[in-house]
Design a binder for these strands. Structure first.
Lengths: 217, 217
DNA sequence: TAATAAAGTTAGGTTAATCTAACAAAAAAT
DNA sequence: ATTTTTTGTTAGATTAACCTAACTTTATTA
């Protein structure tokens, strides 16, 4: 069985390798993502390699093995199911679910997760619009289009958010954006990418950084 | 904030001090209850005293302070609410809830527990018939009568069970005993306390040890 | 009450997960 | 093609939570 710490490493590695082109991660990158020092991470990498969760040579890049991906996706599944539970059943807000799910994702009980899945009606997406893997394994629905790629005078539907930090999600909520809502792009400032948008009749101006974190179609 | 380990010590101490006459516990007793060595426990006792959760002098008995009791009951509350959730909402059986609740009780989020309490309809008892403390604090409903104290040819209602081990609970279920069901005591063997009982028309013979673990009225 | 047993303590050691400081290798820039 | 910067590694230390072995205090019993 994996320790909570090991689980967190696998989850972080999964995230990084999915974001990066070649499915690779580096020691410093991983350390930053876990708020740890590279030296600490280096020790753990040896352990994870030993346990066959990662493939990795000295001074080389890190990749997850099939086993590592399996465990990583398992944690993501638990995280997203718990987020859905908190949001749907316990009336947690969008930005509150993540922190508690970070703890709940480490509970060890296959039965618990499968029963929770059933109780929630086998949801396909979590409150942030991210897909929930089934108990069989990976589900990979790739959103490609971001608000930053939008064009003037077009209307788009919000599918998911990229950043799950509570600072960002509170901002998102303030602008009136929810999952599946429609955003009309009024105008885009070519100089700095600032965007004038309208959501349910409410007008706002958002930064390029903001627009890089909203998935649309 | 308390570590999971510290929480387990406080929970065990609460249990022991409630069971013992004078509200006291001993190092070896506590060690046995946690499946640890006395030397290990001794170290932790110093830490818990330092943090003002227990009162305790070298070679003396251990008692919980008001602060220690408060935390201890908080963990019991969480444990029993999660057990109720697993039993009521996720269809876990009587004997399966304990193990998973042992993990869930350590999740840190006041909001989570209060929302869970609300979601469950502010239950007063967990699936074993044990009272659930409110968010204000301690609830102490003392059952005094055990099946072992029953008399021949009388019928009793089951209020709770004392032992929560899955071996015992599976046995209880096999005999047909549920919370609030009625047990008719047909006869009692004076030599060894063996008891012939009937539950919903189903006849069984149970040992004195068994009868010492069923609360009745 | 003295001997024995039980309960509790201390000292020293282990492992997992972290750190800092110093070093080595690889990549980027001049 | 050197130098510099970035990235990654190693060595040695720390802390929490555990252990064993040896010891001390308190309680029990003969």
């Amino acid at each position: 069985m994996l320790s909570q710490t090991e689980e967190n490493y696998l989850k972080a590695l999964l995230k990084i390798t999915l974001d990066n082109e070649h499915g690779e991660a580096g020691t410093n990158e991983l350390a930053a993502s876990l708020s740890l020092k590279p030296a600490t991470v280096n020790d753990m990498l040896k352990k994870l390699k030993e346990k066959q969760f990662i493939a990795y040579e000295k001074y080389g890049k890190i990749t997850l093995t099939a086993l590592g991906k399996k465990y990583g996706w398992g944690i993501v599944r638990k995280h997203r199911l718990w987020e859905t539970f908190l949001f749907e059943k316990l009336d947690f807000s969008w930005d509150e679910v993540h922190e508690v799910a970070e703890q709940l994702e480490h509970i060890q009980s296959v039965k618990l997760i499968d029963k929770l899945d059933q109780f929630l009606g086998y949801p396909s997406f979590d409150p942030h619009g991210d897909p929930i893997p089934t108990h069989k394994g990976v589900v990979k629905i790739q959103y490609k289009k971001l608000l930053v790629d939008a064009q003037e005078n077009e209307t788009y539907k919000v599918l998911a958010v990229k950043d799950n930090s509570s600072a960002f999600l509170q901002y998102v909520a303030k602008v009136g954006i929810q999952l599946n809502c429609h955003i009309k792009v009024k105008s885009i400032q070519t100089f700095d990418g600032m965007m004038h948008i309208e959501v349910d009749g409410k007008k706002s101006t958002v930064s390029q950084k903001f627009a890089q974190n909203i998935f649309i179609e």
